[in-house]
Amino acid sequence: MAVGRGARRGWTEFVFSLRSPQDQGFYLFTGVGTLAWLWFNREEEVAGTGLLTPTVALPGVLGALLAFGVIIGPAFSLAMEREDGTLLRHKALPHGMRGYVTGQLVYHSLGMFPTFLVLLVPGFLLFDGLMQRGAVGWLTVAWVTLLALAATLPLGMVLGAVVPSTQKVGTWGMLPVLLVTAVSGVFYPVQALWGWVQVLAQVFPVYWIGLGMRSAFLPAEAAAAELGDSWRTGQVALVLLAWAVVGLVAAPRVLARMARRQSGSQVAAARESAAQWVR
């Protein structure tokens, strides 16, 4: 089946990525950067919780990196592979697009493992009391991660399909995602912001992914520091599911439209216009 071939493709690409110095550098940079920030704030106590900054911040950072990775990752891949001919290559295959999209979903989902590992393994060695919930907590991490992937991966694909070129992914993708992440309570509580920003943050999935992650790692009492003094677990699941549904309805249509427009001359034109753009 094309889906199986796509899954194999995703795995192959994942293995390439693990071996690529560029991607290793990225994972290392993410890990070291985040851990350094947590280390310098390791003595800080988060007001009203009795918990230290690393404990409170790490779950949110995990959530934000996940959302960022699976939105910007596929957006970049798709925009680039539209221009280099990868997509067209699949369009020329029987059931090729199905395989290609499956490959993207698998590849970018797998890409979360190294990110999590470079944060969690040193994190647990450096800081005490990160996981307060034991096995139940890890179970929560698992389902929040799955729902988060379902909610954000299709968004990344849609973004990659509509941006005019790879160079535009920064402005069209990175900027809005960074803005949303900035107001989503990852680095400081969302209550510290104006009311309308709080409302805006709660429209997007990043806030809910962070909230779900905090509910997995932090003790029950820490919910007092959240909006509504609650983990709002049901709402986390519902909002993420809703985004997943929106994405799953929109993505196939947008992707089909993009695939229809793919042709050799389009690839050739992109090649010419991107002559200065080094991969």
């Binding site: 094309a2 071939r5 194999r8 493709r9 192959t12 690409e13 390439f16 690529s20 592979e81 280099d84 001919g85 990868t86 067209l88 290559r89 295959l93 029987p94 059931h95 090729g96 395989g99 050799g264 690839v267 050739a268 090649r271 991969r279």
Partner: peptide, 23 residues
């Protein structure tokens, strides 16, 4: 087609095996 520069990280053997599997 005229203009491909895709699958830079794959080897010819891997790429032909993968693309061929669709047939």
């Amino acid at each position: 087609l005229q203009s491909w520069r895709d699958h830079a990280r794959w080897t010819p053997r891997q790429l032909l095996g993968y693309l061929g599997s669709y047939y």
